[in-house]
Amino acid sequence: MHTRRQTLQRSLAVASLMGATGLFPHNAQAFEQAAFDAKSIADAVKAMGGNAPSESADVSLTGPDIAENGAVVPFGIATALPNVKRMLLLVEKNPNALIAMFNVNPEVDANFATRAKMGQTSDVYAVAITNDGKAFFAKKEVKVTLGGCGG
């Protein structure tokens, strides 16, 4: 009998092995399961090909201060930085931190909006990863009065 934790650890281990052998080309259109399984911000950013993120005023995150319904929390993420490869939206205290990843092409603005679920009050991060692997973030605390992950 495997616990969920063991299964997750194993799949993470396999994923990092695959990463080491280059089976995870970062520009391919394969779904990055490892990043979406990651429990922490740092792990998710690493799985998406970024270094340890540093705070930057050039990344912006818009969202409510208080979310009455954690099932639908609107967020906007944007950056003015050049050479941005990816934008991530993460909720620190969700079971899986990574909410969404957007590939930034020259044809689109690095400016996206979507809605996320939040289990509880948490810091929310917008992360921009540049072509050379640097990661920059902006964060905001959002208070949740009714969680949207359990049931």
Partner: peptide, 21 residues
């Protein structure tokens, strides 16, 4: 022009906004 990957943390009946240059 744009690709994205989403996890289960995106809300039900998802909303998406982006800008094409």
């Amino acid at each position: 022009v744009m690709t994205a990957e989403w996890g289960p943390g995106v809300s039900k009946n998802p909303f998406l906004q982006f800008t094409i240059k």
